[in-house]
Design a protein around this nucleic acid. Structure first.
Length: 794
DNA sequence: TTAGGTTTCG
C-alpha cells in the first residue's frame, strides 16, 4: 500500500500511535544501536524537491526538528526517504507537519559539518519496513499550541504501510527485508573469532526455500532466542546477500527478531530482548499458520534425550540443571548437570581438585548418583565458565563415548561437548519461563533423593503428542532387562543359510584342522575396534589388500597441491565437455575450472551430469556433489586432463568417495570417459567409470575381530562384511551419523557394556576356519559368514 | 571482522 493521507485529523480522540512504539530521544539516535520499536518525532522545518537517484529510485529529503529539544541549538536531523515512500510523502508534506518515523536505519550524516544538524541521518523506505505517521497542521493556531506544549500527545495518522514480509523464494541480493520462517537448523549463540557473538539459523517457509542466516551481535540478548528446531522467527531488517550461488541472510543495522514456540496450539508469546515490539493480530495469524504448515510439512525430529535414555556413541540434546562446574585445563571445562533421571550405564567422573569445584557441596553429594560430568572443550569453555550454578541449560549435540577400560568388565560412558559448532553443537541458557524448564522443575522437585539408589522407582514427566502433561513411570532398567532377556532366549544374530547344520562347541573347533565350516552358539565377550569408525577399511578384491580410508585432511592437501598447477586453456571446451573457469574474488585469485560432460552435445540436468573440477577446495567439491551426479577432481597436464594422486578419490557421488587400488590401477587419460558420455543413456555407474579410467575400485568393508565364548573355549573370529551382517552398507557409514548410531546400538545389544558374562546375549553364527601360512609358521584363522543381525534387535 | 550448518577421535 502506498503512502496515503486518509484525512486530516484533529483533537485528541483520534487514533494515537501504536502502543508498542516508544519515543526515541534525538540524543539516543546513534549508529549500531537497536532502534526497533522506537519512533522519532519532529516537525518538518525544511523539505527538498523530490529527486531521482542514478538508478531511478525516487529520493526525498526533509529536516525534522525535535519538539522536545526546541530550545537546544542542535535539534534537527535529516530524514532521507527512498522509493515509493519518497514519492508519496513528497506529495503530502508541508512545512509544519509533524512526522513520527519508525523502522528507520541510522547512518552517519555526511553533511553534518556543513548543515550543523545531527551527526546521523535516518533512512526510511517501504522495503526496510519503515513507517511514517504524519500529523497535518491545522493552521497557525495549532502550530503555535504545539510549540508551546511540546509534550502534548498529538493524534497521528499512519500514512505508510505496515511491515511487508518477503517469502523466502522472493529474496533478492542486496536488499534489506522482513521475513518469517520456521527454524530448520540453528547454532546457539557462540563467541565468534571476531568481537561478537554469532548464531547461524536456517529457515524454511511454505515456499519451500531454505535460507541460512548468519547473525552477529556483541550483545547476546539481541540474537534470536531459539531453543529448538521448529521454533518460528520473525526477522526485521535482515540483509540479503548472494553467497556461493545461494541467498544468505546477515544482520544489518537495526536487525531485530522475535521467536515463537513452533508447537501448534501453544500460546503465541514472542521471545525478545526488546521491551516493545510491533505485534498485531494479523501476525499472530501468521505464526499459527506457519505452525500448522510446519507440523504437516516438516520433519522436526530432535535428538533430545533424558539421561535415562542415553546410549553409548550417540549425539543428543540435553535439557538439564547445572549443579557444579570446575576448570579442568586450558582447553576443557567440567559441567556437572542432572535432569532427574538416572543414566543406565556407569558414568565417568572427571577428576578435578576439590577446591576448583564450584557448587553447593551438600547438593553435589546428595545428587552424586544422578549428576553426570560433561566435559566441554575449546570454544565452549568461555561460555561454560560464565554459567551460573542452578541455571537451566540445553546442551546441544553432546557426544556419549564408551570409555575403553581393559582392567574390568564394567566400562563407563563419557559425555563430551567437543570443540567447534558443527551440527549446532553448543550451550544455551533457558529462561525459567521456558515450558521445558517448567516441566523439568516440577520433575526435579518430585525426585525423592533418598530413593535415587533404587532406579526402578524413577519417574519422569513427559509431554504426549497433544501437548498434555502426563506422568509416566520410567522403568528403564527393567525395560533393558526384558530386552536382554529376549536376546538371551532367542539369539541376537540369525543364520541366512545352512539351517540344518548342528551346533559345534568352540573347544571342538579349536582342536580341529582347517579348513572347515561350523555352526556355533556363543557370546560376544568383546570386539575390536571399540571405536567403530575405525572398523571401516577399503578392500581390493583383485589383490586382496586392505587399505585405511584416507581422512578429509589428506584429500584437502592433495587438492591444495593440485591447485598449484595452472589450468591448461587448450583443454577447455572439447567435443564432449563444456568448460567454465573463474577466479575467486579474494586475494589469492584462485582459479577454478569446471568441465561439464555433455550428452548428445548438450549439458544435461545437474542431477544427471558428471563434472570434472580443477582447482576446487574440499568444501567446494563437497557442495558440488550435492548438486551433480558425479564429481571427478582432475588437473591439467600438457596434453590431457588427468586424475589426481590415487590416495584421493577418483570419483565422488552423493556422500560416497570412491578410491582406486594403488597397486592394481593403471590410470588412463580422462579422454576415455567420453566413451560413456557417448552411450545412449549414460548411467555413470562408479564401477563403469573406474573400468574406463583404468582404476581397480576399492570396496568399503567392515573388518572386526569378535572374541566369542561358549563355556568350552574362547575363539577370535573375524567379521569381514560389505553390508550383510549389519544390514548397513559399509560405504555409507562414515558419512551418515544415523547409520553410525544404528551400528553402535547393534553392537551394544550384541555386547552390552557393563554386563557380566552370564548376562550377555547369545549369538548364532557360521564360521569357517582357514590356514594362513607365513615364513615362520602356519596359523588357523576363523571368519564369520552367512550370518546377520536379527531384525528385531535394533 | 566474526561465519558462511554438514559431529570428535581430547
Amino acid at each position: 500500500m502506498p503512502v496515503r493521507l486518509l484525512k486530516t485529523v484533529s483533537g485528541k480522540s483520534e487514533t494515537p500511535l501504536p502502543s508498542h512504539l516508544q519515543k526515541e530521544d534525538l540524543k539516543h539516535l546513534q549508529e549500531g544501536f537497536d532502534h526497533t520499536n522506537k519512533y522519532f518525532k519532529g516537525v518538518v522545518v525544511l523539505s527538498y524537491p523530490l529527486m531521482k537517484l542514478g538508478d531511478g529510485t525516487d529520493f526525498f529529503k526533509v529536516v525534522l526538528q525535535d519538539l522536545d529539544n526546541w530550545i537546544s541549538r542542535n535539534n534537527s536531523i535529516n530524514i532521507l526517504l527512498y522509493g515509493k515512500m519518497a514519492e508519496d510523502c513528497a506529495k503530502v508534506t508541508r512545512h509544519g507537519d509533524t512526522f513520527a518515523v519508525a523502522g528507520f536505519k541510522v547512518a552517519k550524516s555526511p553533511t553534518a559539518r556543513e548543515d550543523g544538524r545531527h551527526g546521523c541521518h535516518l533512512e526510511v523506505s517501504e522495503e526496510a519496513g519503515s513507517t511514517i505517521y504524519v500529523h497535518k497542521i491545522l493552521g497557525e493556531c495549532l502550530d503555535n499550541f504545539f510549540l508551546l506544549f511540546p509534550n502534548f500527545v498529538m493524534p497521528f495518522q499512519s500514512v505508510a504501510p505496515k511491515y511487508v514480509y518477503t517469502p523466502l523464494n522472493r529474496l533478492k541480493d542486496g536488499t534489506v527485508v522482513n521475513l518469517y520462517g520456521v527454524v530448520k537448523f540453528f547454532k546457539p549463540p557462540y563467541v565468534s573469532k571476531g568481537t561478537d557473538y554469532c548464531s547461524v539459523v536456517t529457515l524454511v517457509d511454505p515456499s519451500n526455500v531454505k535460507l541460512t542466516c548468519t547473525l552477529f551481535n556483541g550483545n547476546l540478548d539481541f540474537l534470536p532466542k531459539i531453543y529448538k528446531v521448529g521454533d518460528i522467527v520473525r526477522f526485521h531488517r535482515i540483509k540479503i546477500r548472494e553467497y556461493n550461488g545461494q541467498m544468505q541472510g546477515i544482520t544489518s543495522a537495526g536487525f531485530a527478531s522475535l521467536t515463537f514456540d513452533g508447537t501448534v496450539g501453544a500460546p503465541v508469546v514472542p521471545r525478545t530482548s526488546s521491551k516493545v515490539y510491533t505485534f498485531m493480530d494479523e501476525e499472530q495469524k501468521i505464526i499459527e499458520e506457519l505452525r500448522v504448515w510446519a507440523d504437516s510439512n516438516l520433519c522436526i525430529f530432535g535428538p533430545a534425550a533424558k539421561l535415562a535414555g542415553v546410549q553409548p556413541m550417540i549425539f543428543f540434546d540435553l535439557t538439564c540443571q547445572l549443579v557444579g562446574k570446575a576448570k579442568v585445563d586450558g582447553s576443557s571445562f567440567l559441567l556437572k548437570v542432572w535432569d532427574g533421571t538416572k543414566c543406565p550405564y556407569p558414568t565417568w567422573k572427571v577428576p578435578v581438585e576439590a577446591r576448583d569445584l564450584e557448587g553447593e557441596k551438600t547438593l553435589l553429594h546428595q545428587l552424586r548418583n544422578l549428576t553426570v560430568d560433561i566435559l566441554v572443550y575449546d570454544n565452549h569453555v568461555q561460555l561454560a565458565k560464565s554459567l551460573k550454578i542452578g541455571s537451566f541449560l540445553r546442551i546441544y549435540s553432546i557426544h556419549t563415548k564408551q570409555a575403553s577400560s581393559d582392567k574390568d568388565d564394567v566400562s563407563c560412558i563419557e559425555f563430551h561437548l567437543h570443540g567447534g559448532t558443527c551440527y549446532g553443537r553448543g550451550i544455551g541458557v533457558l529462561p525459567e519461563t521456558n515450558p521445558d524448564v517448567k516441566e523439568l522443575k516440577v520433575f526435579l522437585g518430585s525426585v525423592d533423593l533418598a530413593d535415587s539408589q533404587n532406579m526402578e522407582s524413577m519417574s519422569s514427566l513427559e509431554l504426549d503428542s497433544t501437548g498434555m502433561k502426563i506422568i509416566r513411570k520410567f522403568f528403564l532398567i527393567s525395560d533393558l532387562e526384558s530386552h536382554l532377556q529376549r536376546c538371551q532366549e532367542l539369539s541376537v544374530t540369525v543364520l541366512t543359510d545352512h539351517q540344518d547344520l548342528k551346533d559345534t562347541e568352540l573347544k571342538t573347533i579349536l582342536n580341529s584342522r582347517a579348513p572347515q565350516q561350523y555352526r556355533i552358539r556363543a557370546k560376544l565377550r568383546t570386539y575390536e575396534p571399540q571405536k567403530l569408525y575405525q572398523c571401516i577399511k577399503l578392500h581390493c578384491s583383485k589383490c586382496n589388500s586392505l587399505w585405511e580410508v584416507p581422512g578429509g585432511d589428506d584429500f584437502d592437501l592433495i587438492l591444495q597441491g593440485s591447485a598449484v598447477t595452472a589450468p591448461n586453456l587448450e583443454l577447455h571446451n572439447t567435443s564432449w565437455y563444456d568448460s567454465v573457469m573463474w577466479t575467486t574474488e579474494d586475494q589469492k585469485q584462485r582459479k577454478i575450472t569446471i568441465h561439464f560432460v555433455k550428452h548428445d552435445e548438450m549439458v544435461q540436468q545437474p542431477e544427471d551430469t558428471l563434472i570434472m573440477i580443477e582447482g576446487g577446495t574440499l568444501k567446494e567439491i563437497w557442495k558440488l556433489t550435492k548438486r551433480f551426479k558425479c564429481v571427478i577432481p582432475v588437473r591439467s597436464t600438457e596434453d590431457d586432463l588427468e586424475l589426481l594422486d590415487l590416495s584421493a578419490p577418483f570419483l565422488l557421488q552423493g556422500n560416497i568417495k570412491y578410491y582406486g587400488c594403488m597397486r592394481c590401477s593403471t590410470p588412463k587419460p580422462i579422454e576415455c570417459l567420453s566413451s560413456i558420455a557417448a552411450e545412449q543413456q549414460p548411467s555413470w555407474e562408479p564401477t563403469e567409470i573406474a573400468r574406463v579410467l583404468g582404476i581397480e575400485p576399492l570396496q568399503y568393508v567392515f573388518v572386526m575381530k569378535f572374541t566369542l565364548v561358549d563355556g568350552t573355549g574362547t575363539l577370535n573370529a573375524y567379521l569381514f562384511d560389505y553390508e550383510k551382517f549389519f544390514q548397513i552398507p559399509a560405504s555409507e557409514i562414515l558419512t551418515n551419523n544415523f547409520l553410525q548410531q544404528k551400528m553402535q546400538m547393534t553392537m551394544n545389544t550384541l555386547c552390552p557394556p557393563g554386563r557380566k558374562l552370564d548376562d550377555l546375549p547369545w549369538l548364532e553364527c557360521f564360521i569357517k576356519s582357514y590356514n594362513v601360512r607365513d615364513v615362520m609358521k602356519q596359523q588357523v584363522y576363523y571368519q564369520i559368514f552367512d550370518t546377520t543381525v536379527a531384525e528385531d534387535v535394533v
